[in-house]
């Protein structure tokens, strides 16, 4: 029996429910020699901002138990250079790419979104309102419902492409922010960005990261992310892209059962670049063994209050 792994994120159809997370995977070309890229439904690109950014001082990474801290600081060439030099290369890629937009003011998001949205090479746009590594600015948006509402509404007005809003776990009530993003016009939610953290070098007696604080990723944060997906899935009807420490098919299935329509793989690619391949094979095997014909049948199954019937509608009859 062949198993159907297709999922939909708004109007975006993906052949498999596994994406690679923003900031983790370049354009995909960096990794293509190491795996079958058909196991990557789409590459979520690194965030781009209005102006070029050098990013944070090094060290930008610290390996921690079952995970790592990062504080890259949104290094990127700025939207002008990006459109002229990078986006043109995306047309030749055999996989879909999802643009990611970051900013420091509501205007920034709308401006960059509008320019990116004009390009056919970009399949969808994720707005990163939850970067924890740009001092007191980036994450503010995802922690304040009023700012979330403003940013999402203004970005929404610039494009008909699927609009994904990436939420922060560093909030009191992620479901409340999720509802605001949905009401403001988001087509999907990416849940979660990294969890704020830090590490200290006891010999140097100072923080290990150049930026002092960073974002924790990897299996260390997985249960936090599963719960966030579970809570958000009960609060909104739009699809969720679950992420946070996914390494195996078992992990990915946890997120799907909690209510995610797709998952992003980030840090696990650095433990083994074949992880997307292994996850796709594992999901296929899981479904086949249970005589399930579509991955869409299990989305939200472990979530009693699951509000999203979007994926299943297409399967009726």
């Amino acid at each position: 029996m062949s198993v159907d792994l297709r999922v939909r994120i708004g109007t975006l159809e993906l052949p498999v429910p596994t994406l690679t997370a923003s900031g983790c995977y370049g354009y995909g070309t960096e990794f293509e020699d190491f795996l079958d890229m058909r196991s990557v439904g789409a590459v979520v690109l690194k965030s781009v901002t209005r102006k070029p950014r050098l990013g944070n001082a090094t060290p930008r990474l610290v390996h921690t138990p079952s995970g790592m801290l990062n504080a890259i600081g949104l290094q990127n060439p700025g939207i002008d250079w990006y459109l002229d030099h990078d986006v043109a290369k995306f047309a030749a890629l055999p996989w879909k790419v999802i643009g990611s937009v970051a900013g420091f003011a509501v205007d920034d998001y709308a401006y960059v979104c509008e320019r990116l949205a004009a390009r056919p090479e970009i399949a969808a746009i994720e707005i990163n309102i939850s970067c924890p590594n740009v001092a007191h600015e980036g994450e503010t948006f995802a922690c304040d419902p009023h700012l979330t509402e403003k940013v999402v509404r203004s970005a929404r007005a610039t494009t008909d492409k699927p609009l994904i809003v990436k939420l922060s776990p560093n909030v009191t009530d992620i479901a409340a922010i999720a509802r605001v993003a949905e009401a403001a016009g988001a087509d999907a939610l990416a849940v979660i960005n990294t969890v704020r953290g830090m590490a200290i070098d006891i010999d140097a007696r100072k923080p290990r990261l150049g930026n002092i604080t960073g974002g924790l990723s990897g299996p260390a944060i997985r249960p936090i992310a599963v719960l966030a997906v579970y809570e958000v899935a009960r609060a909104v009807k739009i699809p969720i892209i679950g992420q946070g420490g996914i390494e195996t098919a078992t992990d990915a299935l946890e997120f799907l059962l909690a209510g995610a329509s797709a998952v992003c793989i980030g840090t696990a690619n650095y433990a083994d670049p074949r992880v997307p391949e292994k996850i796709v094979a594992g999901i296929r095997e899981y479904l086949a063994r249970r005589n399930l014909r579509s991955v869409r049948q299990i989305i939200g199954e472990a979530n009693v209050g699951f509000a999203n019937s979007y994926q299943k509608e297409g399967d009726e009859g």
Binding site: G23, E30, F31, K46, G55, T58, P59, L61, M68, I72
Partner: peptide
């Protein structure tokens, strides 16, 4: 030398 995550230019963690 610097702490690497990906080793292939995908994460921008090891800059100079």
């Amino acid at each position: 030398e610097e702490t690497f995550a990906c080793g292939v230019g995908g994460c921008w963690g090891c800059v100079v």
